[in-house]
């Protein structure tokens, strides 16, 4: 099979139509294509390469609703040169988009099963399209639980949506923070501590995890302790990427290319590599 698109290294131009500040370092951009009316269709978990004129290009997961093709949504945390510059974007500004690239979360496999979503920090952004997909097909899924951990209460994103998810769609949302002040009434501690067997049936569930590698590691350990098998656990990996189409070599992770074999992997397919340092 070969994918023939005009030139996969050539970005399409998008106009930023709306900017939302989520936290002190995280923001969400809504964008529309300049030369057509609809965006491409994508699957939850896929990513785009976003280019800022004269600055550079970075891989960012799509965090919008996969059923909406009117605009593209990316939630971005300013952590480096390119994303810092992106945090200063103004409405009306143009960016380049290449994509969508990569594998997606197992939304089909999860049908008829309990779904446990576990997110750490900005890791919630690539999971939101899964939540939207479930909202649109709620009857096809059994129990749906989202466990979400951040550094502090101020780092929580998409909080304004939780009420709708919980009250209208029967999704359990639990948050926890590493550090807090006295006003915080919720959980304190790592997100894997929230994993509880009452939330899912270990033999009829899919776990979808996105966050820092150490957080994913502990989450998997907790799940395995509760008799979840590796085949039912999915995680999303991140590495340096220059091309997103398997040519630049930067994102190699053992024998995998994160860009084309991932970013979403079934845990059983990469657990050997995850044990190794500096891969």
């Amino acid at each position: 099979m070969s994918i023939q698109i005009s030139d996969p290294m050539l970005p399409e131009l998008y106009k930023v139509t709306k900017i939302q500040e989520n936290t002190h370092d995280t923001f969400t951009l809504e964008m529309v294509p300049k030369n057509k009316t609809k965006i491409f269709s994508f699957l939850p978990g896929q990513f785009n390469m976003i280019y800022l004129f004269g600055v550079g290009e970075v891989p960012i997961s799509i965090s919008g609703d996969p059923s909406s093709t009117d605009f593209l949504v990316h939630t971005i945390r300013a952590v480096g040169t390119v994303t810092d510059a992106m945090s200063k974007i103004k409405e009306g500004q143009t960016v380049g988009i290449r994509g969508p690239f990569g594998s997606h979360w197992p939304i089909e496999k999860a049908m008829g099963k309990d779904v446990l979503l576990i997110a750490g920090g900005i890791g919630l952004a690539p999971l939101r399209p899964v939540v939207y997909y479930i909202l649109a097909h709620r009857s096809k899924y059994r129990k749906v639980v989202l466990l979400y951990g951040t550094r502090s209460p101020d780092d929580i994103i998409y909080e304004e949506e939780y009420q709708n998810w919980q009250e209208n769609f029967d999704i359990t949302v639990e948050t926890t923070v590493d550090n807090t002040d006295s006003e915080w009434q919720g959980h304190v501690g790592i997100v894997s501590a929230l994993i509880s067997k009452k939330d899912f049936s270990p033999t009829n569930m899919v776990a979808i995890i996105c966050g820092p590698e150490i957080m994913m590691h502990f989450s998997v350990q907790e799940l395995v302790r509760r008799e979840v098998t590796w085949n039912d656990i999915y995680i999303s990996m991140e590495r340096n990427m220059k091309c997103a189409i398997g040519f630049c070599g930067h994102c190699q992770y053992g024998a995998k290319f994160i860009c084309k074999d991932g970013p979403v992997f079934c845990y059983s397919s990469i657990q050997e590599t995850l044990k190794r340092r500096e891969i």
Binding site: V79, G80, T83, R239, N240, G249, H250, R277, E278, I279
Partner: peptide, 27 residues
């Protein structure tokens, strides 16, 4: 052309994944 022997090659926000020479030769 780039080389997997540079620190930049595996740079991810916060630092390089392959910081040691050992890991880069092994890669």
């Amino acid at each position: 052309w780039d080389s997997c022997f540079t620190m930049d090659f595996s740079y991810l926000h916060g630092g390089s994944v392959r910081t040691s020479v050992k890991s880069r030769y092994r890669q």
